[in-house]
Amino acid sequence: MPNRLPRFEDGTDDETLAQQASCDPDAFSLLYHRHLPRVYNYLLAHVGNVQDAQDLTAQTFMAVVERLPAYRSQNQFVGWLMSIARHKLVDHFRRHHDHVPFDVLPPHSLDTPPPDEAVEHQLQLEAVAAALQTLTPDRAEALTLNLFAGLSAAETGQIMHKSEDAVRMLVHRALRDLRERLAYEVKP
């Protein structure tokens, strides 16, 4: 991994970098470091374990490298990137069949933290991932893109083909559902 990136500034926009990144490792590295956390955390939130999240992250970026030469600047690199991550995720669930069916789990059957401990509000990754799978797909997707991938409502809407208002509503409902699933209460 290079320590210096000679020809691109940190502020270089995604589109410029994406145009160069198919054959310029330095340009790619900038993009990679800029977006790795969002891709990884988005996937991690869905799968709930580091190993799968790493595998899917690798698959996503490998696909990105493959497809970059054909990428056409549309000022939506992040959307393009996250769409690839989403499809890797869907494919993962399709192949592994390890997701919890939507209506199987009762709201309180998940591993929620012991209520009498100081870590009452410290969410557990696996529990959040499992709870996310009990939400409707749109709500879970909006929430993970918004909170875990760090996308704005507009960017999330672009990926999900929904308006910003619709995204905010989905996130709101996702949080409401998630709160119920996790038996989450505000600490006094």
């Binding site: 969410l123 959040v128 760090g150």
Partner: peptide, 26 residues
Amino acid sequence: MTDPTQTDAEQALAADLLTLRQANPP
């Protein structure tokens, strides 16, 4: 993230989720 339509509990949950995200970097 904050949203006026969210309850305190939901905002707290959102904040905790962000914390969870930050606690699990690649």
